[in-house]
Every structure is written in C-alpha cells, then in structure tokens.
C-alpha cells in the first residue's frame, strides 16, 4: 500500500504479450531449451534402453534398497532391482503411451474438428454432440471405466488416453478452422472451384496444424500424468514391466526408510511434465494462439 498513483501506472501492455516480447528480445527461451534437452535424453534412453549397459530391469540383485552408488548409479529397490534400469525401461512405457495416445488423438481429433468447423450446421451439431459426450465423464473416472472394461496393457492405455485427448484436438482444430474459413485465401480457393476436401487438406490443414502441434505438447504432458496416475493406482502398465507410476506406488511402502525410491521417479515425473509444459508455453508464444486444457 501507500504507493498511491502506481495502480494505473502499470504499463498498458497485456501481460502475456509483454512477457513474450521480453523473452523474445533479450532472453533465450532457457526453459524450453532445458525442457527439450531433458526430453531428448528421456526419449533416447527409452529408445536405446536395450543397448545401454544396464542390468535387466527385472533381474533381482542381492543388495536391497541400496543408496545411489558406483555399482547402481541410482541405487536398488526393495527387491534389489537396479533403479536406473527401471527408470530407463519405465520411460519406455510412459513415452510410448504418451506419444502413441497423443498421435492417435491428433489423427482422429483434428479431422473431426476441421470438418465440424468447416461445414458447420448439422455436421457440426453431430460432432459437437459426440465430443460433448466424451467430455461428460470426469477424466479419471472415464479412464478407469475404459481400463476396467478392456484388458489391461499398453494398447488399452493408448486407446483410453487417446479417447481422452480427442476432444482437446477437435476443439482447437474446430476453433481455428472457423477463424480461418472466412479468410481470403479460402474464398479464392473456393472461387477457383476447389472441392471442400481439397480446401480442408491444402488450404486449412497447414494453418490449423501449428496451434494443434503446440497443443500436442500440453496434451502429452497431461497424458504422461494420466498414465502415471493409472499405473500408480495399479491400473496402468501391469507390474512386472517397470513404470514410473508403479515405482512410486511401490516406493511408498518404504517411504520412511528409503525416501529415494519415491523421490527418483517423482523427480522424473516433475522434469518430464515441466519440460512438456515449458516447450508447450514456448510453442504457444511463437504460434500466438492455441489452447490449454
């Protein structure tokens, strides 16, 4: 208080724009660069998991709950399994599920949204109803219902999570298509006799994809969390296969004595989600529009 007049002395620039400008002018997007580095590391580890000089994630050792050290860089868990190896192989599941589900959701959601936004009318109402129907379950409840109805496993997870992602992509694709459909280049294409399909594919798709791709990063972050949540609850990737969520759940039992068993997967989640969020924010600031969930 006390600094009276400054209430109106706030610079008359919308906040996000100001931040974006400042970032772009004299700062490298450090968050995004660090995020990209971490994600590249995780993805490389996931892809090369077999080739890395690591013990098998399921092989039982004779040192239990060891602290990080020379033999086991991140220590061992309560069954004597190497934690680093389980983190690396766990990244495989998490990344496969997140990337797979996001891709499927994008491939289904974007056409739905574009068709809905381009043709409007009855088509729009029909697709809107479908999307609203999928949105009418609370996300976690929806996931649990789908996962229990189908056989547990990676494919089920991808199906369930992509169903969760479709409405987001459809919504953003639709909004952007509507905004673009009245633009001159679309009118010109129409005047030249282009069919709706051609307009959608050649004129609109590329323009819609930019905001959609920046959304994809955010969706990926939510899906990593969703997969982790399910695995944590014991409904995700079935136990012998390592997963970060499963490791967290297992580490809970020895929280008092071996907190590192919980902290290591927790940090992995933290950095991964932070990385996706930072990249998503950066992409959105570049694209200028887009949407969060």
């Amino acid at each position: 208080m006390g600094q009276g007049g400054s209430l109106v002395a706030v610079p008359p620039v919308p906040s996000e724009l100001a931040v974006g400008l400042r970032l772009r002018r004299n700062k490298r997007p450090i968050g995004a660069i660090l995020g990209a580095t971490w994600l590249i590391l995780v993805i490389l580890a996931a892809v090369l998991a077999q080739a890395l000089p690591l013990p098998k994630p399921a092989s039982l050792g004779n040192t239990y709950s060891a602290l990080p050290g020379w033999h086991h860089l991140l220590g061992t868990d309560a069954l004597g399994r190497d934690v680093l190896s389980r983190i690396v192989f766990g990244a495989r599941g998490s990344m496969a599920v997140a990337v797979g589900a996001t891709t499927v959701a994008l491939l289904i959601g974007v056409p739905l949204g574009m068709i809905s936004g381009f043709f409007r009318g009855a088509t729009d109402s029909g697709i809107s109803l479908f999307v609203n129907f999928m949105l009418s379950f609370p996300p976690l409840i929806f996931l649990i219902a789908v996962v229990t109805a189908l056989k547990p496993g990676i494919v089920t997870l991808v199906v369930a999570l992509s169903l969760l992602g479709i409405p987001n992509f459809a919504r953003v694709a639709r909004a952007n298509t509507i905004a673009l459909a009245d633009r001159e280049f679309v009118t010109a294409a129409r005047a030249l006799g282009a069919s709706p399909l051609r307009i959608l594919r050649r004129e609109l798709l590329a323009n819609v994809m930019l905001p959609v791709l920046s959304l994809a990063l955010v969706v990926m972050a939510t899906l990593v969390v969703a997969e982790g949540t399910l695995s944590f609850l014991g409904l995700g990737i079935p136990p012998p296969t390592p997963s970060w969520g499963g490791m967290l759940a297992a580490g809970r039992d020895s929280l008092r004595t071996d907190p590192q068993l919980v902290l290591i997967p927790a940090l992995c989640f933290f950095f991964t989600v932070l990385a996706f969020n930072n990249l998503g924010d950066w992409a959105r600031s570049r694209v200028g529009r887009g949407s969060s969930i």
């Binding site: 982790g228 929280l255 927790a266 989640f269 969020n277």
Partner: peptide, 22 residues
C-alpha cells in the same frame, strides 16, 4: 505455480506425506 503445475497430484501427495507426515 509452474513447479506445482509440473507435479502430478499423486507425486505431490507423496511428497507432502513425506515432509509433513514422515
């Protein structure tokens, strides 16, 4: 905010349990 945003609820729960409970 950005730290909390990057912490899934179940991770947050366990961290809170560890710090304030254990």
């Amino acid at each position: 905010t950005s730290a909390t945003l990057a912490t899934p609820a179940f991770v947050l729960a366990i961290l809170l349990v560890y710090v304030f409970g254990v």
